[in-house]
Design a protein around this nucleic acid. Structure first.
Lengths: 123, 123
DNA sequence: GGGAGGACTGGCCAACCGGCCAGTTTCGCC
DNA sequence: GGCGAAACTGGCCGGTTGGCCAGTCCTCCC
């Protein structure tokens, strides 16, 4: 393993907590074979620590609601969801309604966005 | 600054490329004051390097489309968007239409999901 | 046995959405 | 001067959405 077949790994920091960012910058800055990205530089990998804000109470969604939510995130219409899950459109609407309530959303788009933000679903 | 007011920083790795993950694990594993997270452990920060798959061609969206897209992601209706941007509902629909085209989406929910996936917007 | 909660279904309806047609203005560029 | 791109506006219309009412089955639990 010569040094040149393993180019430096460039890390960008995306840390909300300044103190933590500082400590990490110091720690990582002195590691051989690795350096921190210059502003605007494209990094090999990012070190991420987001503000752990409003994540504590994970919303209690039923299995069925998760099914519906997942299909909503795929852009499926109520009709399509009904077909997929083998239930009536009315039932889909019923679940969507619960979802809007629980996720505190104003519409299906908002519901998907909120769910994604809270990590309930993965886009 | 005693050692105990600065607890170990726990890093989790989210690297798609196994080789890179390996190198990083080795490099970071030997840094004092820092360790890698055990499976399932809550980490202080994550080191992320996602597959740079279908991200090359960043979709060309106009400024106005970005405006509309951002509001869509907030769950805003066409009417609300129109008010926000001080344009008519028709114009909003026009931009939404272009967005659906460019993002290859079937509806506004799908459009927001696609945009988020491609990093066009941040949820 | 009597809740309580979840899943499911129906009808009804106003509002919203998206796609179609058409048009104007403004801007930069060849 | 002409030409395309972007932004903007209008009318029209069928399909979708979300909220309201109602009801039936379950199952778990006190």
């Amino acid at each position: 393993m010569s040094e040149d077949n393993a180019p430096e790994i460039v890390l960008s920091l995306e840390i909300d907590d300044p103190a933590l960012a500082d400590r990490l910058a110091t720690l990582l800055g002195s590691v051989a074979g690795l350096r921190l990205a210059a502003p605007g530089e494209t990094a090999t990998a990012s070190v991420v620590a987001r503000d752990p804000r409003v994540m504590p109470e994970d919303i209690a969604l039923t299995q069925r609601e998760l099914d519906v939510l997942a299909l909503m995130a795929e852009g499926a219409s109520n009709k399509m969801i009904a077909r997929q899950l083998n239930i009536s459109v009315h039932t889909v609407k019923f679940h969507v309604g619960s979802l809007l309530d629980k996720l505190d959303a104003t519409g299906r788009t908002d519901a998907v966005a909120h769910a994604a933000r809270r990590g309930v679903i993965e886009l």
